[in-house]
Write a protein that binds this DNA or RNA. Structure first.
Lengths: 300, 300
DNA sequence: ACCGCTTACGAAAATCGTAACTATG
DNA sequence: CATAGTTACGATTTTCGTAAGCGGT
Protein backbone atom coordinates (compact mmCIF):
# COMPACT_ATOMS: atom_id res chain seq x y z
CA UNK A 1 0.00 0.00 0.00
CA UNK A 2 1.39 3.38 -0.97
CA UNK A 3 0.21 6.94 -0.63
CA UNK A 4 -0.03 7.24 -4.38
CA UNK A 5 -2.38 4.31 -4.53
CA UNK A 6 -4.53 5.70 -1.77
CA UNK A 7 -4.60 9.07 -3.44
CA UNK A 8 -5.64 7.53 -6.73
CA UNK A 9 -8.35 5.56 -5.02
CA UNK A 10 -9.54 8.53 -3.04
CA UNK A 11 -10.02 10.81 -6.00
CA UNK A 12 -11.48 8.14 -8.20
CA UNK A 13 -14.05 7.40 -5.52
CA UNK A 14 -14.68 11.02 -4.79
CA UNK A 15 -15.05 12.05 -8.40
CA UNK A 16 -16.71 8.83 -9.50
CA UNK A 17 -14.65 8.72 -12.65
CA UNK A 18 -11.17 7.40 -13.36
CA UNK A 19 -10.40 9.75 -16.22
CA UNK A 20 -11.23 12.88 -14.27
CA UNK A 21 -9.36 11.63 -11.25
CA UNK A 22 -6.35 10.92 -13.44
CA UNK A 23 -6.43 14.45 -14.81
CA UNK A 24 -6.75 15.74 -11.29
CA UNK A 25 -3.56 13.93 -10.35
CA UNK A 26 -1.71 14.75 -13.57
CA UNK A 27 -1.30 11.15 -14.61
CA UNK A 28 -2.80 9.09 -17.41
CA UNK A 29 -5.88 7.03 -16.90
CA UNK A 30 -3.81 3.92 -17.39
CA UNK A 31 -1.58 4.83 -14.50
CA UNK A 32 -4.49 5.61 -12.26
CA UNK A 33 -6.23 2.40 -13.17
CA UNK A 34 -3.13 0.45 -12.36
CA UNK A 35 -2.60 2.13 -9.02
CA UNK A 36 -6.09 1.25 -8.01
CA UNK A 37 -5.71 -2.29 -9.27
CA UNK A 38 -2.55 -2.63 -7.19
CA UNK A 39 -4.27 -1.31 -4.14
CA UNK A 40 -7.11 -3.72 -4.66
CA UNK A 41 -4.79 -6.65 -4.99
CA UNK A 42 -2.75 -5.64 -1.96
CA UNK A 43 -5.97 -5.53 0.01
CA UNK A 44 -7.46 -8.62 -1.55
CA UNK A 45 -10.64 -6.68 -2.10
CA UNK A 46 -12.34 -5.03 -5.01
CA UNK A 47 -12.73 -1.37 -4.17
CA UNK A 48 -14.94 -0.37 -7.10
CA UNK A 49 -17.99 -1.83 -8.71
CA UNK A 50 -17.15 -1.33 -12.39
CA UNK A 51 -20.26 -2.92 -13.77
CA UNK A 52 -22.02 0.35 -14.48
CA UNK A 53 -20.66 3.38 -16.24
CA UNK A 54 -19.74 5.20 -13.09
CA UNK A 55 -17.15 3.70 -10.81
CA UNK A 56 -18.99 3.09 -7.57
CA UNK A 57 -16.99 2.19 -4.46
CA UNK A 58 -17.85 -1.20 -3.06
CA UNK A 59 -18.68 -1.73 0.59
CA UNK A 60 -14.98 -2.23 1.28
CA UNK A 61 -14.20 0.85 -0.78
CA UNK A 62 -16.62 2.94 1.24
CA UNK A 63 -14.87 1.95 4.42
CA UNK A 64 -11.46 2.65 2.98
CA UNK A 65 -12.54 6.03 1.68
CA UNK A 66 -12.77 7.64 5.09
CA UNK A 67 -9.42 6.28 6.17
CA UNK A 68 -7.81 7.29 2.89
CA UNK A 69 -9.06 10.81 3.36
CA UNK A 70 -7.52 10.99 6.81
CA UNK A 71 -4.27 9.62 5.43
CA UNK A 72 -4.01 12.25 2.74
CA UNK A 73 -4.88 14.89 5.23
CA UNK A 74 -2.16 13.66 7.50
CA UNK A 75 0.30 13.60 4.63
CA UNK A 76 -0.29 17.29 4.04
CA UNK A 77 0.03 17.94 7.73
CA UNK A 78 3.32 16.07 7.74
CA UNK A 79 4.60 18.16 4.87
CA UNK A 80 3.75 21.36 6.66
CA UNK A 81 4.45 20.54 10.24
CA UNK A 82 8.13 20.11 9.52
CA UNK A 83 8.86 23.68 8.58
CA UNK A 84 6.65 25.05 11.30
CA UNK A 85 8.05 27.78 13.48
CA UNK A 86 10.50 28.97 10.88
CA UNK A 87 9.64 32.11 9.06
CA UNK A 88 8.67 31.97 5.42
CA UNK A 89 10.80 33.44 2.66
CA UNK A 90 10.44 34.06 -1.02
CA UNK A 91 7.60 35.71 -2.84
CA UNK A 92 3.88 35.35 -2.28
CA UNK A 93 1.59 36.68 -4.96
CA UNK A 94 -2.04 36.74 -4.10
CA UNK A 95 -5.27 38.15 -5.37
CA UNK A 96 -7.66 40.27 -3.40
CA UNK A 97 -10.91 42.03 -4.13
CA UNK A 98 -11.10 45.79 -4.00
CA UNK A 99 -13.20 45.62 -0.86
CA UNK A 100 -10.59 43.43 0.79
CA UNK A 101 -7.84 45.78 -0.28
CA UNK A 102 -9.65 48.67 1.38
CA UNK A 103 -10.43 46.85 4.59
CA UNK A 104 -8.35 44.02 5.94
CA UNK A 105 -5.35 44.03 3.60
CA UNK A 106 -3.21 46.48 5.57
CA UNK A 107 -3.65 44.61 8.84
CA UNK A 108 -2.94 41.33 7.09
CA UNK A 109 0.19 42.64 5.45
CA UNK A 110 1.42 44.17 8.67
CA UNK A 111 0.98 40.90 10.52
CA UNK A 112 2.67 38.78 7.89
CA UNK A 113 5.57 41.21 7.46
CA UNK A 114 6.12 41.17 11.16
CA UNK A 115 6.22 37.39 11.43
CA UNK A 116 7.90 36.70 8.09
CA UNK A 117 10.32 39.50 7.30
CA UNK A 118 11.88 37.40 4.54
CA UNK A 119 8.65 37.05 2.61
CA UNK A 120 7.81 39.47 -0.19
CA UNK A 121 4.06 40.02 -0.54
CA UNK A 122 2.60 40.98 -3.89
CA UNK A 123 -1.10 41.66 -3.58
CA UNK A 124 -2.94 41.93 -6.85
CA UNK A 125 -6.32 43.66 -6.84
CA UNK A 126 -8.88 42.55 -9.39
CA UNK A 127 -12.35 41.11 -9.84
CA UNK A 128 -13.17 37.64 -8.57
CA UNK A 129 -13.36 36.07 -12.01
CA UNK A 130 -9.92 37.30 -12.99
CA UNK A 131 -8.45 36.29 -9.69
CA UNK A 132 -9.83 32.77 -9.96
CA UNK A 133 -8.40 32.44 -13.44
CA UNK A 134 -5.01 33.59 -12.31
CA UNK A 135 -4.97 31.27 -9.36
CA UNK A 136 -5.92 28.37 -11.63
CA UNK A 137 -3.09 29.28 -13.98
CA UNK A 138 -0.65 29.44 -11.13
CA UNK A 139 0.08 33.15 -11.53
CA UNK A 140 -1.24 33.70 -8.05
CA UNK A 141 -0.62 31.54 -5.03
CA UNK A 142 -4.10 32.20 -3.73
CA UNK A 143 -6.90 34.73 -3.75
CA UNK A 144 -9.60 35.92 -1.42
CA UNK A 145 -12.76 36.82 -3.27
CA UNK A 146 -16.47 36.23 -3.51
CA UNK A 147 -17.02 32.68 -4.43
CA UNK A 148 -16.66 30.02 -5.40
CA UNK A 149 -19.08 30.79 -8.20
CA UNK A 150 -17.53 28.99 -11.11
CA UNK A 151 -17.18 25.32 -10.36
CA UNK A 152 -13.61 24.53 -11.17
CA UNK A 153 -12.53 21.06 -10.17
CA UNK A 154 -8.93 21.98 -9.58
CA UNK A 155 -9.76 24.77 -7.16
CA UNK A 156 -10.15 24.45 -3.44
CA UNK A 157 -12.10 27.12 -1.66
CA UNK A 158 -12.70 27.77 1.98
CA UNK A 159 -15.23 30.31 3.16
CA UNK A 160 -13.68 32.96 5.39
CA UNK A 161 -16.30 35.68 5.77
CA UNK A 162 -19.89 36.64 5.07
CA UNK A 163 -20.64 40.23 4.12
CA UNK A 164 -24.04 41.89 4.20
CA UNK A 165 -24.99 43.86 1.09
CA UNK A 166 -27.65 46.53 0.69
CA UNK A 167 -29.14 48.51 -2.10
CA UNK A 168 -28.15 52.15 -1.92
CA UNK A 169 -28.83 55.35 -3.78
CA UNK A 170 -28.45 59.06 -3.42
CA UNK A 171 -31.34 60.62 -1.47
CA UNK A 172 -31.67 63.07 -4.34
CA UNK A 173 -32.72 60.19 -6.59
CA UNK A 174 -34.90 58.03 -4.40
CA UNK A 175 -36.97 58.52 -1.28
CA UNK A 176 -35.78 57.19 2.07
CA UNK A 177 -37.58 53.98 2.95
CA UNK A 178 -38.34 52.99 -0.63
CA UNK A 179 -38.44 49.24 -1.10
CA UNK A 180 -36.62 48.02 -4.18
CA UNK A 181 -38.87 46.09 -6.52
CA UNK A 182 -39.01 45.31 -10.21
CA UNK A 183 -40.61 48.71 -10.65
CA UNK A 184 -37.51 50.50 -9.42
CA UNK A 185 -35.38 48.82 -12.01
CA UNK A 186 -37.58 50.34 -14.66
CA UNK A 187 -37.26 53.81 -13.18
CA UNK A 188 -33.65 53.76 -12.09
CA UNK A 189 -30.50 52.59 -13.79
CA UNK A 190 -28.53 50.03 -11.86
CA UNK A 191 -24.80 50.49 -11.62
CA UNK A 192 -22.95 47.22 -11.31
CA UNK A 193 -19.43 45.99 -11.49
CA UNK A 194 -18.15 44.26 -14.60
CA UNK A 195 -19.23 40.73 -15.33
CA UNK A 196 -16.18 39.16 -13.84
CA UNK A 197 -17.08 40.47 -10.43
CA UNK A 198 -18.39 38.15 -7.76
CA UNK A 199 -20.76 40.90 -6.72
CA UNK A 200 -22.24 41.15 -10.16
CA UNK A 201 -22.55 37.43 -10.40
CA UNK A 202 -24.44 37.29 -7.12
CA UNK A 203 -26.68 40.08 -8.32
CA UNK A 204 -27.48 38.27 -11.53
CA UNK A 205 -28.32 35.09 -9.69
CA UNK A 206 -30.59 37.04 -7.41
CA UNK A 207 -32.29 38.96 -10.24
CA UNK A 208 -32.79 35.81 -12.25
CA UNK A 209 -34.36 34.12 -9.24
CA UNK A 210 -36.91 36.95 -9.02
CA UNK A 211 -37.37 36.90 -12.78
CA UNK A 212 -36.40 40.55 -12.93
CA UNK A 213 -35.49 42.53 -15.99
CA UNK A 214 -32.81 45.08 -15.25
CA UNK A 215 -31.46 47.94 -17.30
CA UNK A 216 -27.85 48.23 -16.51
CA UNK A 217 -26.61 51.39 -18.10
CA UNK A 218 -23.44 51.63 -16.17
CA UNK A 219 -20.87 48.98 -15.60
CA UNK A 220 -17.58 49.71 -13.89
CA UNK A 221 -14.79 47.66 -12.45
CA UNK A 222 -14.14 49.73 -9.35
CA UNK A 223 -16.30 49.62 -6.28
CA UNK A 224 -15.16 53.02 -5.11
CA UNK A 225 -15.88 54.52 -8.51
CA UNK A 226 -19.38 53.07 -8.42
CA UNK A 227 -19.85 54.53 -4.99
CA UNK A 228 -18.91 57.93 -6.36
CA UNK A 229 -21.33 57.54 -9.25
CA UNK A 230 -24.09 56.50 -6.92
CA UNK A 231 -23.48 59.42 -4.60
CA UNK A 232 -23.69 61.66 -7.66
CA UNK A 233 -27.20 60.35 -8.25
CA UNK A 234 -26.48 58.51 -11.50
CA UNK A 235 -28.33 55.37 -10.40
CA UNK A 236 -28.80 52.78 -7.72
CA UNK A 237 -26.33 50.11 -6.71
CA UNK A 238 -25.61 47.63 -4.00
CA UNK A 239 -22.76 47.83 -1.55
CA UNK A 240 -21.34 46.13 1.45
CA UNK A 241 -23.54 47.77 4.05
CA UNK A 242 -20.97 48.11 6.76
CA UNK A 243 -18.34 49.55 4.52
CA UNK A 244 -20.60 52.31 3.22
CA UNK A 245 -21.90 53.40 6.58
CA UNK A 246 -19.83 56.61 6.63
CA UNK A 247 -21.56 57.75 3.45
CA UNK A 248 -24.94 56.86 4.81
CA UNK A 249 -24.26 58.66 8.07
CA UNK A 250 -23.26 61.78 6.24
CA UNK A 251 -26.47 61.64 4.24
CA UNK A 252 -24.77 61.06 0.91
CA UNK A 253 -26.43 57.68 0.44
CA UNK A 254 -29.54 56.01 1.75
CA UNK A 255 -29.83 52.35 2.42
CA UNK A 256 -32.82 50.71 0.75
CA UNK A 257 -34.51 47.45 1.57
CA UNK A 258 -35.44 45.15 -1.26
CA UNK A 259 -37.94 42.36 -1.44
CA UNK A 260 -36.49 39.79 -1.12
CA UNK A 261 -33.31 41.24 0.38
CA UNK A 262 -29.96 40.67 -1.26
CA UNK A 263 -28.29 37.58 0.12
CA UNK A 264 -25.10 37.85 2.12
CA UNK A 265 -22.04 37.27 0.01
CA UNK A 266 -19.53 34.67 0.98
CA UNK A 267 -15.86 35.45 0.57
CA UNK A 268 -13.54 32.51 0.20
CA UNK A 269 -9.90 31.67 0.32
CA UNK A 270 -9.19 30.25 -3.11
CA UNK A 271 -6.19 28.13 -4.05
CA UNK A 272 -5.31 25.31 -6.37
CA UNK A 273 -6.49 22.08 -4.90
CA UNK A 274 -3.23 20.28 -5.54
CA UNK A 275 -1.12 23.02 -4.06
CA UNK A 276 0.02 21.63 -0.73
CA UNK A 277 2.87 24.07 -0.33
CA UNK A 278 3.62 25.11 3.17
CA UNK A 279 3.45 28.72 2.05
CA UNK A 280 -0.20 28.42 1.13
CA UNK A 281 -1.38 26.51 4.15
CA UNK A 282 0.43 28.81 6.52
CA UNK A 283 -0.61 32.05 4.89
CA UNK A 284 -4.14 30.76 4.78
CA UNK A 285 -4.17 30.70 8.54
CA UNK A 286 -3.30 34.39 8.65
CA UNK A 287 -6.05 35.17 6.20
CA UNK A 288 -8.60 33.29 8.24
CA UNK A 289 -7.50 35.13 11.34
CA UNK A 290 -7.16 38.60 9.86
CA UNK A 291 -10.02 38.83 7.39
CA UNK A 292 -12.37 41.50 8.67
CA UNK A 293 -14.40 43.35 6.10
CA UNK A 294 -15.75 45.78 8.66
CA UNK A 295 -12.36 47.18 9.54
CA UNK A 296 -11.77 50.15 7.34
CA UNK A 297 -8.57 51.77 6.09
CA UNK A 298 -10.24 55.11 5.73
CA UNK A 299 -10.51 55.46 9.47
CA UNK A 300 -7.60 53.42 10.69
CA UNK B 1 7.11 11.36 0.69
CA UNK B 2 6.21 7.69 0.96
CA UNK B 3 4.99 5.47 3.73
CA UNK B 4 8.22 3.51 3.65
CA UNK B 5 10.19 6.65 4.25
CA UNK B 6 7.97 7.68 7.12
CA UNK B 7 8.20 4.24 8.62
CA UNK B 8 11.98 4.27 8.38
CA UNK B 9 12.10 7.67 10.01
CA UNK B 10 9.66 6.70 12.71
CA UNK B 11 11.55 3.66 13.86
CA UNK B 12 14.92 5.27 13.58
CA UNK B 13 13.70 8.11 15.77
CA UNK B 14 11.93 5.81 18.17
CA UNK B 15 14.84 3.40 18.53
CA UNK B 16 17.52 6.08 18.29
CA UNK B 17 19.63 3.89 16.07
CA UNK B 18 19.58 3.29 12.33
CA UNK B 19 20.97 -0.23 12.46
CA UNK B 20 18.38 -1.49 14.91
CA UNK B 21 15.59 0.23 13.05
CA UNK B 22 16.79 -1.36 9.84
CA UNK B 23 16.68 -4.79 11.45
CA UNK B 24 13.25 -4.03 12.78
CA UNK B 25 12.06 -3.33 9.24
CA UNK B 26 13.95 -6.21 7.64
CA UNK B 27 16.06 -4.00 5.41
CA UNK B 28 19.73 -3.12 5.37
CA UNK B 29 21.07 -0.09 7.13
CA UNK B 30 21.97 1.37 3.80
CA UNK B 31 18.39 1.20 2.63
CA UNK B 32 17.10 2.72 5.80
CA UNK B 33 19.65 5.48 5.67
CA UNK B 34 18.67 6.27 2.14
CA UNK B 35 14.97 6.33 2.88
CA UNK B 36 15.55 8.82 5.61
CA UNK B 37 17.84 10.88 3.42
CA UNK B 38 15.15 10.98 0.76
CA UNK B 39 12.56 12.04 3.26
CA UNK B 40 14.85 14.76 4.50
CA UNK B 41 15.46 16.08 1.03
CA UNK B 42 11.79 15.95 0.11
CA UNK B 43 11.08 18.02 3.20
CA UNK B 44 14.09 20.29 2.83
CA UNK B 45 14.88 19.67 6.45
CA UNK B 46 17.33 17.60 8.38
CA UNK B 47 15.37 15.24 10.59
CA UNK B 48 18.26 13.89 12.64
CA UNK B 49 21.17 15.40 14.41
CA UNK B 50 23.92 12.92 13.49
CA UNK B 51 26.70 14.67 15.29
CA UNK B 52 26.63 12.46 18.36
CA UNK B 53 26.63 8.70 18.52
CA UNK B 54 22.89 8.38 18.85
CA UNK B 55 20.67 9.68 16.11
CA UNK B 56 18.66 12.42 17.78
CA UNK B 57 15.67 13.87 15.95
CA UNK B 58 15.99 17.56 15.24
CA UNK B 59 13.29 20.04 16.12
CA UNK B 60 11.66 19.36 12.75
CA UNK B 61 12.05 15.63 13.32
CA UNK B 62 10.30 15.85 16.66
CA UNK B 63 7.35 17.51 15.03
CA UNK B 64 7.23 14.97 12.25
CA UNK B 65 7.46 12.09 14.67
CA UNK B 66 3.97 12.51 16.04
CA UNK B 67 2.46 12.85 12.59
CA UNK B 68 4.41 9.87 11.30
CA UNK B 69 3.08 7.78 14.13
CA UNK B 70 -0.47 8.71 13.27
CA UNK B 71 0.19 7.92 9.63
CA UNK B 72 1.46 4.43 10.36
CA UNK B 73 -1.43 3.88 12.67
CA UNK B 74 -3.82 4.92 9.97
CA UNK B 75 -2.09 2.67 7.47
CA UNK B 76 -2.78 -0.32 9.68
CA UNK B 77 -6.34 0.84 10.14
CA UNK B 78 -6.70 1.09 6.38
CA UNK B 79 -5.44 -2.44 5.95
CA UNK B 80 -7.95 -3.74 8.43
CA UNK B 81 -11.05 -1.69 7.79
CA UNK B 82 -11.32 -3.03 4.29
CA UNK B 83 -12.10 -6.59 5.26
CA UNK B 84 -14.28 -5.53 8.14
CA UNK B 85 -17.68 -7.11 8.41
CA UNK B 86 -16.66 -10.21 6.55
CA UNK B 87 -16.03 -13.26 8.60
CA UNK B 88 -12.52 -14.56 9.01
CA UNK B 89 -11.38 -17.86 7.54
CA UNK B 90 -8.34 -20.04 7.76
CA UNK B 91 -6.51 -21.20 10.86
CA UNK B 92 -5.70 -19.27 14.00
CA UNK B 93 -3.18 -20.81 16.36
CA UNK B 94 -2.83 -19.10 19.66
CA UNK B 95 -1.29 -19.63 23.04
CA UNK B 96 -3.08 -19.49 26.33
CA UNK B 97 -2.16 -20.04 29.95
CA UNK B 98 -3.69 -22.89 31.88
CA UNK B 99 -5.70 -20.45 33.96
CA UNK B 100 -7.07 -18.87 30.82
CA UNK B 101 -7.92 -22.26 29.40
CA UNK B 102 -9.94 -23.08 32.50
CA UNK B 103 -11.76 -19.78 32.66
CA UNK B 104 -12.45 -17.62 29.65
CA UNK B 105 -11.34 -19.87 26.78
CA UNK B 106 -14.70 -21.63 26.26
CA UNK B 107 -16.65 -18.39 26.08
CA UNK B 108 -14.07 -16.90 23.76
CA UNK B 109 -14.12 -19.89 21.45
CA UNK B 110 -17.90 -19.98 21.40
CA UNK B 111 -18.08 -16.33 20.45
CA UNK B 112 -15.48 -16.55 17.71
CA UNK B 113 -16.96 -19.77 16.26
CA UNK B 114 -20.32 -18.11 16.13
CA UNK B 115 -19.10 -15.02 14.29
CA UNK B 116 -16.45 -16.72 12.17
CA UNK B 117 -17.63 -20.21 11.27
CA UNK B 118 -14.90 -20.47 8.64
CA UNK B 119 -12.08 -19.96 11.12
CA UNK B 120 -10.35 -22.94 12.71
CA UNK B 121 -9.11 -22.17 16.21
CA UNK B 122 -6.13 -24.06 17.61
CA UNK B 123 -5.51 -23.07 21.23
CA UNK B 124 -2.20 -24.23 22.63
CA UNK B 125 -1.85 -24.33 26.41
CA UNK B 126 1.59 -23.78 27.87
CA UNK B 127 3.61 -21.59 30.19
CA UNK B 128 4.12 -17.92 29.42
CA UNK B 129 7.78 -18.29 28.50
CA UNK B 130 7.10 -21.01 25.96
CA UNK B 131 4.17 -19.13 24.53
CA UNK B 132 6.21 -15.98 24.06
CA UNK B 133 8.93 -17.94 22.30
CA UNK B 134 6.44 -19.53 19.96
CA UNK B 135 4.79 -16.25 19.15
CA UNK B 136 8.17 -14.74 18.39
CA UNK B 137 8.99 -17.65 16.11
CA UNK B 138 5.70 -17.25 14.32
CA UNK B 139 4.36 -20.66 15.38
CA UNK B 140 1.54 -18.90 17.14
CA UNK B 141 -0.42 -15.94 15.90
CA UNK B 142 -0.73 -14.55 19.39
CA UNK B 143 -0.85 -15.55 23.03
CA UNK B 144 -2.51 -14.37 26.20
CA UNK B 145 -0.29 -14.83 29.20
CA UNK B 146 1.31 -13.10 32.15
CA UNK B 147 3.68 -10.56 30.88
CA UNK B 148 5.44 -9.09 29.23
CA UNK B 149 8.33 -10.16 31.42
CA UNK B 150 11.09 -10.71 28.94
CA UNK B 151 11.76 -7.57 26.99
CA UNK B 152 11.69 -8.61 23.38
CA UNK B 153 11.84 -5.77 20.90
CA UNK B 154 9.84 -7.52 18.23
CA UNK B 155 6.91 -8.27 20.52
CA UNK B 156 3.92 -6.05 21.08
CA UNK B 157 1.94 -6.59 24.24
CA UNK B 158 -1.29 -5.11 25.42
CA UNK B 159 -2.54 -5.62 28.97
CA UNK B 160 -5.99 -7.19 29.07
CA UNK B 161 -6.56 -8.21 32.69
CA UNK B 162 -5.25 -8.00 36.24
CA UNK B 163 -5.58 -11.03 38.47
CA UNK B 164 -5.26 -11.05 42.25
CA UNK B 165 -3.05 -13.79 43.69
CA UNK B 166 -2.92 -15.13 47.23
CA UNK B 167 -0.83 -17.53 49.20
CA UNK B 168 -2.73 -20.69 50.04
CA UNK B 169 -2.17 -23.87 51.96
CA UNK B 170 -4.06 -26.78 53.42
CA UNK B 171 -5.47 -26.03 56.89
CA UNK B 172 -3.83 -29.27 58.02
CA UNK B 173 -0.44 -27.69 57.37
CA UNK B 174 -0.80 -24.13 58.50
CA UNK B 175 -3.07 -22.19 60.88
CA UNK B 176 -5.80 -19.97 59.53
CA UNK B 177 -4.76 -16.33 59.69
CA UNK B 178 -1.04 -17.01 59.54
CA UNK B 179 0.87 -14.23 57.80
CA UNK B 180 3.44 -15.45 55.33
CA UNK B 181 6.95 -14.25 56.16
CA UNK B 182 10.50 -15.39 55.56
CA UNK B 183 10.04 -17.71 58.50
CA UNK B 184 7.28 -19.66 56.74
CA UNK B 185 9.55 -20.37 53.81
CA UNK B 186 11.94 -22.08 56.20
CA UNK B 187 9.20 -24.23 57.69
CA UNK B 188 7.14 -24.95 54.61
CA UNK B 189 8.10 -26.01 51.11
CA UNK B 190 6.86 -23.74 48.37
CA UNK B 191 5.31 -25.35 45.34
CA UNK B 192 5.77 -23.30 42.20
CA UNK B 193 5.33 -23.69 38.52
CA UNK B 194 8.32 -24.30 36.26
CA UNK B 195 10.69 -21.46 35.49
CA UNK B 196 9.06 -20.62 32.24
CA UNK B 197 5.85 -19.64 33.98
CA UNK B 198 4.85 -16.04 34.31
CA UNK B 199 3.61 -16.82 37.80
CA UNK B 200 6.95 -18.18 38.87
CA UNK B 201 8.70 -15.24 37.37
CA UNK B 202 6.49 -12.84 39.29
CA UNK B 203 7.14 -14.80 42.46
CA UNK B 204 10.88 -14.67 41.97
CA UNK B 205 10.81 -10.94 41.41
CA UNK B 206 8.75 -10.54 44.56
CA UNK B 207 10.95 -12.82 46.65
CA UNK B 208 14.10 -11.15 45.42
CA UNK B 209 12.66 -7.75 46.32
CA UNK B 210 12.12 -8.98 49.90
CA UNK B 211 15.54 -10.59 49.92
CA UNK B 212 13.95 -13.92 50.75
CA UNK B 213 15.55 -17.31 50.56
CA UNK B 214 13.07 -19.96 49.49
CA UNK B 215 13.30 -23.72 49.45
CA UNK B 216 11.38 -24.88 46.48
CA UNK B 217 11.15 -28.61 46.68
CA UNK B 218 8.37 -29.01 44.21
CA UNK B 219 8.12 -27.57 40.76
CA UNK B 220 5.35 -28.50 38.40
CA UNK B 221 4.05 -27.20 35.13
CA UNK B 222 0.34 -27.55 35.85
CA UNK B 223 -1.61 -25.17 38.02
CA UNK B 224 -4.32 -27.72 38.73
CA UNK B 225 -1.74 -30.30 39.72
CA UNK B 226 -0.16 -27.82 42.10
CA UNK B 227 -3.58 -27.12 43.55
CA UNK B 228 -4.01 -30.84 44.20
CA UNK B 229 -0.60 -31.06 45.84
CA UNK B 230 -1.36 -28.08 47.99
CA UNK B 231 -4.71 -29.49 49.08
CA UNK B 232 -2.87 -32.68 50.01
CA UNK B 233 -0.77 -30.63 52.41
CA UNK B 234 2.56 -31.04 50.61
CA UNK B 235 3.40 -27.34 50.85
CA UNK B 236 2.26 -23.79 50.32
CA UNK B 237 1.67 -22.09 47.01
CA UNK B 238 0.09 -19.03 45.48
CA UNK B 239 -3.00 -19.06 43.33
CA UNK B 240 -5.37 -16.77 41.59
CA UNK B 241 -7.59 -15.98 44.55
CA UNK B 242 -10.88 -15.84 42.73
CA UNK B 243 -10.31 -19.05 40.86
CA UNK B 244 -9.58 -21.06 44.02
CA UNK B 245 -12.53 -19.78 46.00
CA UNK B 246 -14.48 -23.05 45.70
CA UNK B 247 -11.65 -24.91 47.43
CA UNK B 248 -11.42 -22.27 50.11
CA UNK B 249 -15.15 -22.33 50.69
CA UNK B 250 -15.12 -26.10 51.09
CA UNK B 251 -12.32 -25.78 53.65
CA UNK B 252 -9.74 -27.58 51.52
CA UNK B 253 -7.48 -24.55 51.37
CA UNK B 254 -6.99 -21.44 53.45
CA UNK B 255 -6.04 -18.08 52.05
CA UNK B 256 -3.04 -16.52 53.75
CA UNK B 257 -1.93 -12.92 53.79
CA UNK B 258 1.71 -12.16 53.22
CA UNK B 259 3.72 -9.12 54.10
CA UNK B 260 4.01 -7.47 51.64
CA UNK B 261 1.17 -9.02 49.67
CA UNK B 262 1.79 -10.59 46.29
CA UNK B 263 1.28 -8.06 43.55
CA UNK B 264 -1.54 -8.48 41.07
CA UNK B 265 -0.45 -10.19 37.90
CA UNK B 266 -1.03 -8.56 34.57
CA UNK B 267 -2.12 -10.72 31.67
CA UNK B 268 -1.36 -9.41 28.22
CA UNK B 269 -2.26 -10.02 24.64
CA UNK B 270 1.05 -10.85 23.00
CA UNK B 271 1.78 -10.73 19.28
CA UNK B 272 4.63 -9.94 16.94
CA UNK B 273 4.99 -6.22 16.59
CA UNK B 274 5.24 -6.32 12.83
CA UNK B 275 2.24 -8.54 12.42
CA UNK B 276 -0.44 -6.22 11.07
CA UNK B 277 -2.64 -9.02 9.78
CA UNK B 278 -6.31 -8.40 9.98
CA UNK B 279 -6.71 -11.75 11.71
CA UNK B 280 -4.67 -10.61 14.68
CA UNK B 281 -6.18 -7.19 15.10
CA UNK B 282 -9.69 -8.49 14.85
CA UNK B 283 -9.23 -11.49 17.12
CA UNK B 284 -7.54 -9.21 19.59
CA UNK B 285 -10.77 -7.33 19.96
CA UNK B 286 -12.59 -10.50 20.96
CA UNK B 287 -9.91 -11.32 23.48
CA UNK B 288 -10.16 -7.90 25.04
CA UNK B 289 -13.91 -8.25 25.25
CA UNK B 290 -14.09 -11.83 26.44
CA UNK B 291 -11.16 -12.21 28.80
CA UNK B 292 -12.59 -12.83 32.24
CA UNK B 293 -10.48 -14.80 34.65
CA UNK B 294 -13.24 -14.99 37.22
CA UNK B 295 -15.61 -16.91 35.01
CA UNK B 296 -15.02 -20.59 35.67
CA UNK B 297 -15.58 -23.64 33.48
CA UNK B 298 -16.08 -25.87 36.49
CA UNK B 299 -19.36 -24.19 37.25
CA UNK B 300 -20.52 -23.06 33.86
C1' DA C 1 40.22 0.13 15.34
C1' DC C 2 35.40 0.01 16.16
C1' DC C 3 30.88 1.89 15.66
C1' DG C 4 27.36 4.25 13.16
C1' DC C 5 26.02 6.24 9.20
C1' DT C 6 26.74 7.52 4.19
C1' DT C 7 28.09 6.82 -0.61
C1' DA C 8 29.01 4.19 -4.98
C1' DC C 9 27.42 1.09 -7.96
C1' DG C 10 25.09 -2.53 -10.42
C1' DA C 11 21.20 -5.69 -10.55
C1' DA C 12 16.37 -6.14 -10.11
C1' DA C 13 11.90 -4.28 -9.88
C1' DA C 14 8.57 -0.66 -10.11
C1' DT C 15 6.44 2.96 -12.40
C1' DC C 16 4.65 5.36 -16.22
C1' DG C 17 2.83 6.51 -20.75
C1' DT C 18 1.42 5.07 -25.55
C1' DA C 19 -1.54 2.51 -27.83
C1' DA C 20 -4.32 -1.25 -28.61
C1' DC C 21 -8.18 -3.70 -26.56
C1' DT C 22 -12.76 -4.80 -24.22
C1' DA C 23 -17.11 -3.89 -22.34
C1' DT C 24 -21.13 -1.10 -21.56
C1' DG C 25 -24.94 1.95 -22.66
C1' DC D 1 -20.14 4.24 -31.73
C1' DA D 2 -18.80 6.79 -28.01
C1' DT D 3 -17.50 6.49 -23.33
C1' DA D 4 -15.01 4.24 -19.47
C1' DG D 5 -11.72 1.22 -17.97
C1' DT D 6 -8.09 -2.54 -18.72
C1' DT D 7 -4.09 -4.77 -20.75
C1' DA D 8 0.42 -5.14 -23.29
C1' DC D 9 4.71 -3.54 -23.62
C1' DG D 10 8.92 -1.03 -23.62
C1' DA D 11 11.56 3.00 -21.76
C1' DT D 12 12.80 5.22 -17.74
C1' DT D 13 13.22 5.63 -12.97
C1' DT D 14 13.39 3.86 -8.44
C1' DT D 15 14.69 0.76 -5.12
C1' DC D 16 17.66 -2.26 -2.80
C1' DG D 17 21.70 -4.74 -1.20
C1' DT D 18 26.83 -5.31 -1.26
C1' DA D 19 30.77 -3.26 -0.24
C1' DA D 20 33.67 0.47 0.37
C1' DG D 21 34.20 5.11 2.62
C1' DC D 22 34.31 8.31 6.46
C1' DG D 23 34.17 10.69 10.70
C1' DG D 24 33.92 10.37 15.64
C1' DT D 25 35.31 8.10 20.03
Amino acid sequence: MTLKQLEAFYWAAKLGNFAIAAARLHVTQSTLSKRIAELESSMNHLLFDRSGKRAIPTEAGQRLLAVAHDMLDLRDRARNTVGEGESLRGVCQFGISELGALTWLPKFVARVRLEHPGLVLRPYVDLAGQLAKRVARGDLDFAVAVGPWKEAAEMASHAVARVRFSWMASPTRIGVGTVITQECFEQHPVITMTEDSGLTHAFEVWAAAQGMQVQRILVCNSLMAIAGLTVAGIGISYFPAEFMRPWVERGLLVELRSEPPLPDLEYSFLARQDDARELVSRIKRYVVEEVDFSWDTRFA
